[in-house]
Amino acid sequence: MAQAVSILLSQELVVLERAVGELRRRNLPIESIAVGPAEAPGMSCLTVILSTDEAGADMTAKKLNKLSGVREVKRFPLDDGLACELALIKVRVTEQHRAELLDVCELFKATVVDETPDAGIVQVAGTGSLVLAFIRALERFGILEVARSGSVALPRVSADAGAATPAP
């Protein structure tokens, strides 16, 4: 089962490098990795989705929590949380398939964010598997380029706050 590990760390690149290096060294299968600014100033949030069991995620979280520059590490099984990924897909658009493309977009709650007579960019957000399914559905139109963000994740409000290990 996939496990989410969410790491609040200083936004310095060396700290990010330290955290990513720790993940690499522990040799765990990483499904997705995403980094963006955190709520707190000067901090980033690194979200990692691991294909491992709870014990594996727990050990990873503890090792990450030791690193200097890491403020807090949370982990939770993805089943107890929400994960979301953003993707931009540049796709070929022809007049005859335009309506069909819009139908597919509607099905996946995707929006067309840029368009020329020959091509368009559609934006979709959702779980990694939804994004993948959407990309597959677009293949028949002709995909020109794809940009995916990797997943961010939060534990569900109803779930326990995850196994948070706050700094002293």
Binding site: S10, N65, K66, S68, G69, T165, P166, A167, P168
Partner: peptide
């Protein structure tokens, strides 16, 4: 403390 060391958890 910017850098900190173990043990991080109470």
């Amino acid at each position: 403390g910017r850098a900190r060391s173990v043990p991080p958890c109470p």
